[in-house]
Design a protein around this nucleic acid. Sequence first.
DNA 1: TCTGGGGTCCTAGGACCC
DNA 2: TCTGGGGTCCTAGGACCC
Length: 406
Amino acid sequence: MARIIVCVDMDAFFASVEQRDNPALRGKPIAITGAGERTVITTSSYEARVYGVKTGMTIYKAKRLCPHIIFVTGDNRKYTQVCRRLEEICLRFTPDIEIYSIDEVFLDITGSHHLSGGPENLARTIKDTVKNELGITCTVGMGPNILIAKLASDLAKPDGFKWIGEDTVASVFETLPVKKLWGIGSHTEEKLRAMGITTCGALGRAPLSLLTKKFGIIGERLKAMGNGKLERPLEIAPPEPKSIGHSITLPKDIWKLEEITSCLLRLSEKVGRRARRYGHKGRKITLTVRYADFKTFTKQIALSVHTNDTGEIYRYAVAILDGIHLRKSVRLLGISLSCLGKDGDQMLLFQETDREKKAALAKAVDTVNDKFGEHTITFASIMTREEGPGVISPAWRPSGVRNSDV
DNA sequence: TCTGGGGTCCTAGGACCC
DNA sequence: TCTGGGGTCCTAGGACCC
């Protein structure tokens, strides 16, 4: 039996929440940004999109396109709460849901839609419930798999509903540009164009040998996608994370070593703290450096034991830095912890006593910080810095380690 | 398009081993 | 000792997503 997948996608999520809560913003072009000057737009209201304002755009460009645009600094906590309520609404219809991102949920209603009067009725009930209880609109797409459900919601935006059944996939895909598909970005689009393929219909008909020659193992998936097929079950339980990282574009480019190391210490603490909170340890540390000219590179170091200790992460990050000749001033720094294992794995057997002491100390610091707010207890050099609220990652999830809003 | 921040997955090339 | 082939792990980079 064909599955029925629903995609619930909030319309201009962050912007809609702000307009809901502040009548002065309703009906106006607004854009949600992070703090600071070097931020970009994470969401713009539909009124702003008319002017060409888009996600990822700088505030300067947005201002040029729409001089009367209103910028609002994002309120992560608020969006988090709305997302939790959205999750709770979806769970009324089926336990088989995947929170894909902060504003997008997939539901597998194959076995449960009859309880809600059929698929279309269920979808419309969700739309109404979201509007009544959350005060904002969403778009609902339906299809035989995630690929089609997501496409349907994209095509129906905003405040819409669309069901692409298995029998209509071929006709929809015949003239649909390949870029509309989830997983085909501008690079793949360009490569396909060079091969004379611009529509999904053409992609589905393209010889497999040609696609695998050009794209390797991905070629097979591309052809399947061109035919509207995507084998990917819903991830009901949030998957174990593979890495935990933080990065920051600095307010100003820096080049002094002590400025760089001070930033690395702050990043180490963020990474270590989040890892400790969720009981993860890693044995690979990656340093990302972006120069003022935007050239970006990464360098990593493998550890012999797992760690989530701030001081240790910091020391390895500095060790990596020591091996790099910094030629230009630095725009962005990032630290990521990967090759993760949970606390309690056999790696703990190799912990030495002073490592245990450090872990206990770090835990004590975390406890205080949890109680009184981040940075209550911290390293001295961290305290010399003020930091505004960051931009919430739209890939955020309400539970688990991807919740970076700590 | 002068370009944030959180991730995942894939690939190519080299080291190393048998 | 001028030199095979397969497997695995590691590193760096890139495409893609929201």
